[in-house]
Each structure stands twice: as C-alpha cells, then as structure tokens.
C-alpha cells in the first residue's frame, strides 16, 4: 500500500520545525522513518502534514560533558553502534544496539525516533529507563527536560505536548568499571523482543554497591525492578541471591497479545532478570543463552 496524500515539509532549523509543528494541524514528525513509514503505508496513521527532521541542523551528535553522555535526537542507531565513546562510557547502550532491528534499519533509525515511538519492547527505551536518562524537549515556549521515568505516558505515547520536539537524550554515565548486560527473548533474531532485561551493577570489594535492573516488553513501558535493586545492594553477587530476589518480577503487570500471554511474559521477566544480573556479574559467561547467534 501507499499512504494517502499529505503535505511534506523540510525545515532547516529547529526553530522552523517547532514553528511548523505549532501551526499545522494533524502533523507528524519524520525522523528515521523505520516505524512511521510502514505505519503511513499501511494507513495506520493518516497525517495531513509530515515534517521531515532530517535536514534540521544540529540535531545529531554524541558528546560527553561532566559525566553525562549527550546524544542528539537525530543520531542514527548505526552511528551509536560504532561510537567508541558509547562503547567506553555506556556499554549497556552498546550491547542493546546489537539487538535493535537489523543493520539496514539501524542505518536509518534514530535514537529520538525510537524513544518517541515508544514501543514497549524497544531496546533504546529500556536502556534510557535503566540509566535514568533525561529527555530534552523544545517547544514554542522554549526548552524543558523530562526525567525518563516520567516520559512514557501510556502505550506508544510519550509525555510530550503535540507541539514539542525531542532534541536530545542525556544519559548519566556510571563510573568506569561498572558492569552492564542487555539480553532479550524474541520469537526470532531481529524481531521485536517479547521480553528484554537490562542490568547495571557497580561491584566494589566483592559487594554490589549500586544496581539498576529494568525489564522491557512486559508492560506498556519498561519497568524498573526496584525491589530487586534494593535487595541486592550490599550483597555479594551470587546466582542463588539473584534467583531468589528476581521472583518478585513475577508480580509485574503484564500485557498479553498473540505473541505471548501475560503469565508467560511475567515468567520470562523472572528468568531474564536473573540471567541479565548473572551476565553483568560475570557469573554466566558460558551459559548457552549468552552465546552469539
């Protein structure tokens, strides 16, 4: 299929883009197009205007300032995948990117586009939740920042106004030497994950001093397993500990669809939570599920 007719706009500056978005009715922003284009072609969305952000200057790039990784919203996923800075400072993001679609879609897909589409199973959404990222937004009234915990407003719905544009993602990096693991369970390699798990651990003197555990794909937005995080801080990392505390993930509210029932998603949350922690803590280097495809 092809989309029904719409008006195409290609602003060159952020101010121009914000201006268009604020004045046009029923407009959609086009970033990498990896979700919007199929949705247009299948007529799931029917905008009157499409505002293409690809020519807007200054919306892409990766830099680190004062322990915060700042990524422009229009930065391609493939660029992040090959960034030495990302690999060094944010290994979780680096690992997660390997699961994002396929090479062809990563060439075009952007981090901002993925976050705004806000698929419950999207890897980049899970990483931002795990890292307590901040989302920078520009609107007619100026700019503002949104803590990622407040960013998902519902299924496929970010908490931004209709006239706002996400401009950057700020990820506070963890201290050097921290451990990260991103794993997921999908129907087939490259498909959307049914459930994913992202673990960050800081281990000093044989004890966990800081922990972050996030489960994606179970609920409408990724969930932080705060109960697990609290239970493991101060403890020595062991498989027995992780197995015991991760049972709490079974109580997450879960979606059901044709790909997986709610109770199966909850069960996978338990298994993947434990496996992600084990992987981050180097307890499962030889586990078959950690082998490359």
């Amino acid at each position: 299929m092809k989309p029904p007719p719409f008006q195409y706009h290609d602003p060159k500056t952020l101010a121009e883009a914000v201006g268009l978005l604020g004045t046009l009715d029923n407009a959609k922003l086009l970033a990498g197009g990896q979700s919007l284009m199929p949705m247009l072609n299948m007529r799931f969305v029917l905008p009157d205007h499409v505002i293409d952000l690809n020519l807007v200057e200054g919306m892409a790039g990766i830099k680190e300032t004062d322990g915060v990784l700042e990524i422009g919203a229009m930065t391609r996923q493939r660029e992040l995948e090959f960034s030495d800075l990302v690999a060094a400072k944010c290994p979780l993001l680096h690992q997660a990117l390997m699961h994002v679609g396929h090479r062809q879609t990563r060439n075009r897909g952007t981090i901002g586009g993925s976050l705004c589409h806000l698929d419950p199973a999207a890897e980049l959404v899970t990483v931002c939740m795990a890292h307590d990222a901040t989302i920078a937004v520009a609107g007619p009234g100026g700019t503002r920042e949104i803590a990622f915990a407040d960013f998902p407003a519902g299924y496929l719905t970010p908490a931004i106004e209709l006239n706002e544009i996400v401009t950057a993602i700020r990820i506070p990096v963890w201290p050097a030497g921290h451990k990260a693991a991103f794993i997921e369970f999908s129907r087939r390699h490259g498909d959307f994950a049914i459930v994913s798990a992202a673990a960050l651990l800081q281990i000093d003197g044989g004890r966990i001093t800081r922990a972050s555990l996030t489960i994606g794909g179970v609920a409408v937005a990724p969930v932080r397993a705060t109960e697990v995080e609290q239970a493991i801080v101060g403890q020595a990392p062991t498989s027995e500990l992780f197995a015991k505390v991760c049972e709490s993930c079974r109580s997450f509210e879960a979606m059901a669809d044709i790909h997986a029932s709610a109770e199966y998603r909850q069960h996978l949350a338990v298994v993947l939570a434990r496996r992600a922690l084990e992987k981050a803590a180097d307890l499962a280097d030889n586990a078959p599920w950690n082998r490359a495809h």
Partner: peptide
C-alpha cells in the same frame, strides 16, 4: 512459529510484521 491467529473469524496477524516466515537466522 507460523500460525494465522483467528478471532471470531477475523485474522488478527494478516501481515508479515506479525506473521513471520523463516529467515536466515532461523
């Protein structure tokens, strides 16, 4: 993995996005 899901006669996965066929990774 292939299956046409049918709910009250309505095919609920009538597209290659939701009905997957084997690829090289399979």
């Amino acid at each position: 993995f292939e299956k046409m899901h049918i709910d009250g006669g309505q095919v609920t996965n009538a597209s290659l996005a939701d009905y997957k066929i084997p690829g090289f990774h399979d």
